[in-house]
């Protein structure tokens, strides 16, 4: 079947029930999107489907249909994604980095939907897990991106 991904249309041959994550990583060889839990719980596999965040480990290929898939590889082609990456660097968010492609995708999807999110909006949307505990830095970067200043000392949303 045809898959629209990162501005290209590609032909993929995986079975319809294959999780999109494995199509992206194994069939298409793009390994920026990570496998974390396989159960939609951690968010490491986050991608965008038509600009909305989706967890590719629980998205069967057959569910994608005509939606445009955006992975971390193309996130900087989007002006919003580019800003997110800049702020992620400015605030030195990543530690080990494993969850960060998912975090950046989640942040980009939120800001594309709502350029001026409130603290509650950010807390509601940024639910990906990070084993290094970079949540303080994620909060800093998100508040900066939302134009809400910086987090109070030690504050996480």
């Amino acid at each position: 079947m045809k898959l629209k991904i990162n501005g290209h249309s590609v032909e993929v041959t995986s079975d319809p029930d294959t999780p999109l994550l494995w199509v992206i990583r194994d069939e298409l060889g793009m390994t920026g999107t990570k496998f974390g839990c396989g159960l939609a719980q951690c968010g490491a596999c986050s991608v965008m489907l038509d600009g909305k965040v989706a967890r590719s480990c629980v998205t069967p290929l057959s569910s994608v249909g005509a939606a445009e898939v955006t992975t971390i590889e193309a996130v900087e082609a989007d002006p919003v994604g580019q800003r997110v990456v800049e702020k992620w660097i400015a605030h030195q968010v990543p530690q080990c980095g494993y969850c960060q492609s998912g975090q950046v995708v989640a942040a980009t999807a939120l800001l594309k939907e709502n350029p001026k999110p409130s603290r509650d909006d950010i807390a509601a949307a940024m639910v990906n897990l990070c084993r290094c505990g970079t949540y303080n830095r994620i909060s800093d970067a998100m508040l900066d991106l939302a134009g809400l200043g910086t987090a109070k000392d030690g504050e996480t949303l």
């Binding site: 939609a40 719980q41 989706a54 967890r55 629980v58 998205t59 069967p60 057959s62 569910s63 939120l110 939907e113 709502n114 999110p117 409130s118 509650d120 909006d121 807390a123 509601a124 949307a125 639910v127």
Partner: peptide, 28 residues
């Protein structure tokens, strides 16, 4: 995102359930 923090259960649904069962509850 603006509403679900104030509706009991809505944020849990969005964060824990909606990625599989989808926000519209229709599943895949």
């Amino acid at each position: 995102p603006a509403q679900r923090m104030s509706v009991p259960g809505a944020q849990i649904f969005a964060a824990k359930c909606s990625f599989c069962h989808k926000l519209d509850g229709k599943g895949q």
